[in-house]
């Protein structure tokens, strides 16, 4: 028989403790982009433990470290501006929190700043991405076709539907026109890589994944995408301010 001795109500909490909420801004770049959102939650919680931060645990049958992410990031996308909120039982200097965590975090994830939250999670409206593409056609041609693709009335993509147990995965067609906007497009100095700046709506429950978007582009134009990378560069609020 397997027996679990469950940690009881955490000793370092009482029912209504003074707690200090910090909003941490961090990067998720390099191979860290392959860490899924659910896995990232675990990575963070274990890092807090390794850094011995005095984290506040939620009240309930299964006490958990308090941890909130305002906007999850798609698997495979890098980011310069990720956020999470944590709660501590003691006041710590923001620099102290950053340096202690950065010692124990995996490569690619780095805490840039810590501070009191300014905006509400619900203030988030959109986020900006930089996409870099190499295509099977000359860069100029790709730029032209990409402009057409993003200015069309409809942008149909095949969205993967999470398969039910023992079922094959399914795809359904979806128009993402209202969710994505091309802000800027240019050719890098090496003359092969196309850089796009995209604004995608965020915080409305729909999270755009770029792989199906580019597959739709390929299917429509017969231009093969040889490689691409995506990076979130900004998270913007309804009032136009940078989320912080």
């Amino acid at each position: 028989m397997e027996v679990f001795i469950v940690a009881q109500t955490p000793k370092n909490q009482n029912l209504d403790p003074d707690r200090y909420v910090y909003r941490l801004m961090f990067t998720k770049v390099g191979t860290a982009k392959f860490i899924s959102h659910l896995d990232l939650v675990r990575v963070m919680q274990r890092s807090f433990k390794r850094a011995k931060l005095p984290v506040w645990y939620t009240q309930g049958f299964n006490p958990r470290q308090y941890l909130m992410f305002p906007l999850p990031l798609s698997l495979g996308t890098e980011s310069e501006t990720e956020f999470m909120d944590i709660a501590l039982l003691e006041f710590l200097q923001p620099e102290d929190i950053c340096s202690r965590l950065n010692l124990v975090l995996p490569e690619g994830i780095k805490i840039l700043s810590a501070g009191a939250p300014v905006h509400e999670h619900t203030d988030i409206e959109k986020s900006d991405y930089t996409i870099r593409i190499t295509a099977s056609v000359p860069a100029e041609e790709a730029v032209e076709k990409l402009r057409d693709f993003f200015s069309a009335d409809k942008i149909q993509i095949m969205k993967r539907v999470k398969p039910k147990k023992n079922r094959r995965e399914e795809f359904k067609e979806m128009d993402v026109r209202q969710y994505v906007q091309l802000m800027d497009i240019s050719i890098d100095s090496d003359e092969t890589v196309v850089s796009l700046r995209l604004a995608a709506s965020a915080g409305n429950g729909f999270n755009l994944n770029f792989a199906p978007l580019l597959e739709a582009f390929s299917a429509k134009t017969k231009i093969e995408i040889l490689s691409f990378s995506a990076k979130r560069t900004k998270i913007l609020c309804k009032n136009g301010e940078n989320f912080s």
Partner: peptide, 25 residues
């Protein structure tokens, strides 16, 4: 959490059982 696979719970002393009040099997 402490997990104890392949354990015979009947072998515990009263004192220990008292201590580990919150056991989830």
């Amino acid at each position: 959490n402490l997990s104890l696979p392949s354990l015979r719970i009947d072998s515990f002393s009263e004192e220990l059982l008292e201590k580990i009040k919150s056991v989830r099997k």
